Computed example of a mutant assay.
Amino acid sequence: MSGAERDAVTVTSAVLRRWPLPPPGVGKEARGRTCVVGGSDRTPGAVLLAAEAALRSGAGKLQVATTASTAPALGVALPEALVLGLAQNADGGIDPACGAQGSELAELAAGAHAVCLGVGTIGEPAVVALLEALVPPLEQTVVLDALGLAPVTRDATFLHHLRGAAVLTPNLNELAIVLGADEEEVTRDTAGAARELARRSRCTVAAGGGESWIAAPDGRLWLDVSGGAGLGVSGSGDVLAGIVTGLCARGADPVQAAVWACHLHGRAGDRLASSVGRLGFLARELPAEVPRVLAEIEV
């Protein structure tokens, strides 16, 4: 056991009951506005997973920005959401010019309480250019997932201006890439790697594998062992990013949102493991379990 691991708090329902989420408001505006930005021609479903997860975690108002070619289908799949179709580049991803200040996307993101960036995006140079235009003026909580982590890989200070109001949700491979480390080394000491990334980036880090490690910028550390191997499935990370974003939108601070989100995500997996099987449940089935887990914890 590493020194980092010995410092960790193991997350349980009892721990979370002593750290309750902010009470929900009575209207959709009172529970916060989320903005999920991502997707491409090849991976349109990631945005759907993250967006539904944000609502299922209690956020009140949902806004989604994705590629113009997939926006109509996403709008039908998410009748609760405002869906903004964005210009595309030749690869079928979001055109980086869409992030320019004064653009529709920039105004949509600036008006949200929490913004999720990166799910389902393709083309690292284009994604980096998009986020480098879109993120610096933002003052609300930002959640970066998947290729959305690329700007932090290039520059660890990318989110320093947010003063801790940001969450990174890498899987173990992404965690290794962002740190410039060997994946086997990160797997052996995920706790230390998550803490190091939190220190460098000044963001909360929720790093998932067979278990989840959540590291705060000030060095605090949590371990969540719920969920198991079944969560290692395509789209599961998109759901986690959406839960974090939804909890931030409804008023949780980034550290609390990340800790709660990992447990909600894991417990949703546990529920599906008991009803479907330890392996073989789908990421799309996770969001519907989140309100049930919330109710169980908050009783």
Rank of each mutant, 00 (worst) to 15 (best):
S2F: 06
G3T: 13
G3A: 15
R6D: 13
D7Y: 09
V9L: 14
V9G: 11
A14S: 15
P22S: 04
P24K: 10
G27F: 10
E29L: 14
G32I: 08
V36F: 07
G38Q: 04
G39N: 01
T43V: 10
P44N: 01
L48Q: 11
A50H: 03
S57I: 00
G58W: 07
G60Q: 06
V64W: 00
T66H: 00
S69K: 14
L82I: 15
A87Q: 11
N89T: 06
D95H: 13
G99W: 12
A100G: 11
S103L: 01
L108A: 10
A109I: 02
G111D: 14
H113T: 14
H113F: 09
V115F: 00
V115D: 01
L117H: 12
G118A: 06
V119G: 03
V119T: 13
G120Q: 05
I122R: 15
G123N: 12
E124N: 07
L131T: 11
E132D: 14
A133K: 15
V135Y: 06
P136V: 05
L138F: 00
L138E: 03
V142N: 06
V143S: 07
V143Y: 08
V143F: 03
A150E: 10
A150C: 06
V152Y: 09
T153E: 15
D155G: 06
T157N: 14
L159V: 10
H160I: 10
H161T: 03
R163M: 13
P170I: 04
G180H: 07
A181Y: 06
A181P: 04
V186K: 00
T190G: 10
A191R: 11
G192K: 08
A193L: 01
R195M: 08
E196T: 01
A198H: 02
T204A: 09
G208H: 11
E211F: 12
S212D: 15
W213Q: 06
I214R: 12
A215M: 07
A215L: 07
L221C: 02
L223W: 14
D224L: 08
D224I: 01
V225S: 15
G227Y: 05
G232N: 09
G235S: 09
G235H: 05
S236L: 06
A241W: 00
V244Y: 02
T245P: 02
T245H: 02
G246Q: 04
L247A: 00
L247W: 02
R250I: 02
V255Q: 14
W260K: 02
H263V: 00
D270V: 03
R271W: 07
G277E: 03
G280W: 00
G280Q: 02
P287Q: 08
E289P: 11
V293T: 08
E296H: 12
